[in-house]
Nucleic acid binder design. Structure first.
Length: 443
RNA sequence: GGCCCCAUCGUCUAGCCCGGUCAGGACACAGGAUUUUCAUUCCUGCAACAGGGGUUCGAAUCCCCUUGGGGUCACCA
């Protein structure tokens, strides 16, 4: 018979959700979805010292943000103490576990490790052999009455009827202990799939010194959840063809543990950036506009006076030019600023040039005379101006661009002017005009 | 160090299980085209089977060894 698939993600609330944890959660989620199963969230809060409610909340938030939704739970281990005690009693009674008195730590319950070879079946590694006699007896109930990891994990996975445990390679060495517990408790063991770890760009275990490692940080830096989920999913798995951009829904239909790789992969920020850019380019305009608004508000940008229509235009103007929402925050800062900063190099390259004063003041007059500030009206007018004066559009656009944005790069100039609005555009050109004669006066 | 895992371009990977295509795609990088700037887009290029033994007519693919990388050795999970 084929039992109904049940998977779980079991983080401990001692920190934020790590990108590696996010991938583990995602794989468990995808595997359950793919097989019409159930995905369960369990919080392993048995370390009373380090567990914090705010981390539990942060992990829940990160999972939700990524679109990884759980069907059951969260189940808290701290609320199942009776169950662990009961299971421990059973092992104590059978003699497979015993009480261990430590003068300093107090009384704990330890499990006896048998002296034999233990074969560990694994969906990605096939079968691995461990010599259990190399392991010491291990604690199952700590002296504070809380269960130790391996014990709580086994009892819970059995109670929750988990069928597939998908977790990182770092847990491989726990397998002998866990298998011994399943056997002693008379519980059926689930199937295991140990997936390779995610390393930093330098091949060392991904850690804080590599920069951002938590989902929260990527959120803060303006990455989209779709892109991050898509990216981490591809670290250790691929659908087999050349498909790379996939929504979670797509992956739900494609994910397959038999296609999981065995070797560790490195976290390549460059590719994540590219992928985020791809999502930014293809997001529905309204959704992107909403995301941008949310991001800018989070950055304390005053958005009073900017409606959704305007925000959507901003989104359209910038989506192909940015890799993250933060890029937009930086690139479009001039829009919201009262006083803009002029990049010295841009000033020198464009404004402090022979004849620019004439072009700019002529442009200023044209703009001042324009009532219709729509970008294509502005463009029509300037095309005529260029035609009449025999100038290339670029020669006219660049001085204006630097004058109103402070730099040489921006969306198409007329769209930029339209976004900026008549007042800001004109006053910025005026102020540049005022300081220009001194700057470019003939020596 | 003991035990365990792993090994294709710089990176993510397809191909491996069921040996036989110029070892394919993507990121990055380098050229070029388009373009009012930036970017996008489109071409082109660069670049890998860790090494050594086997097995075989034939090995990236199967086996062994070496080397290299990683994980783990807690009353942390």
């Amino acid at each position: 018979m084929t039992e109904k698939v049940r998977t779980r993600f079991a983080p401990s609330p001692t920190g934020y959700l790590h990108v590696g944890g996010a991938r583990t959660a995602l794989y468990n989620f995808l595997y359950a979805r793919r097989h019409g199963g159930t995905f369960i969230l369990r919080i392993e809060d048995t370390d009373r010292e380090r567990s914090e409610d705010r981390f539990t909340q942060a992990i829940l938030d990160s999972l939700s943000w990524l679109g990884i939704n759980w069907d059951e739970g969260p189940v808290f281990q701290s609320q199942r103490l009776d169950r662990y005690r009961e299971a421990a009693e059973k092992l104590l009674a059978s003699g497979e576990a015993y009480c261990d008195e430590d003068p300093e730590k107090g009384r704990a319950v330890k499990m006896r490790m048998p002296r034999r070879i233990i074969k560990v079946p694994d969906l990605v590694h096939d079968e691995i052999e461990f010599d259990a006699s190399l392991n010491d007896d291990f604690v199952i109930i700590k002296s504070d009455g809380f269960p130790a990891y391996n014990f709580a994990c086994v009892v819970d996975d059995a109670d929750l009827a988990i069928t597939h445990v998908i977790r990182g390679d770092e847990h491989l060495s726990n397998m002998p202990r866990q298998l011994v517990l399943y056997e002693a408790l008379g519980l059926p063991a689930p199937q295991f799939a140990h997936i390779p770890m995610i390393l930093g760009p330098d091949g060392a275990k991904l850690s804080k010194r590599h920069g951002a490692t938590s989902v929260t940080e990527y959120h803060d830096k303006g990455f989209l959840p779709e892109a991050l989920a898509n990216f981490v999913a591809l670290l250790g798995w691929s659908p087999g063809n050349d498909l790379e951009i996939m929504s979670i829904e797509d992956m739900c239909g494609l994910f397959d543990l038999s296609r999981a790789r065995k070797n560790a992969s490195r976290f390549d920020n460059e590719k994540l950036m590219w992928m985020n850019g791809q999502y930014l380019m293809n997001l529905p305009a309204e959704r992107l506009a909403a995301d941008i608004r949310e991001y800018l508000v989070r950055k304390n940008v005053d958005l009073a006076g900017y409606d959704d229509v305007w925000m959507t235009r901003l989104a359209e103007a910038y989506r192909i030019r940015i890799k993250t929402l933060d890029d937009l925050y930086v690139a479009a800062a001039y829009v919201f600023a009262d006083e803009i900063e002029y990049d010295p190099a841009s000033m020198k390259k464009v404004l402090e040039k022979e004849g620019v004063l004439d072009v700019l003041s002529a442009s200023r007059d044209i703009l001042a005379a324009q009532d219709d500030w729509a970008s294509d009206r502005l463009e029509e007018r300037f095309r005529v101006f260029c035609e009449e004066t025999g100038r290339a559009l670029g020669k006219v656009a660049q001085p204006i661009r630097v004058a109103v944005t402070g730099s040489t790069a921006s969306p198409p100039i007329f769209e930029t002017l339209a976004l900026l609005g008549r007042d800001k555009s004109l006053s910025r050109i005026d102020s540049v005009l005022k300081r220009l004669p001194t700057a470019s006066s003939p020596e």
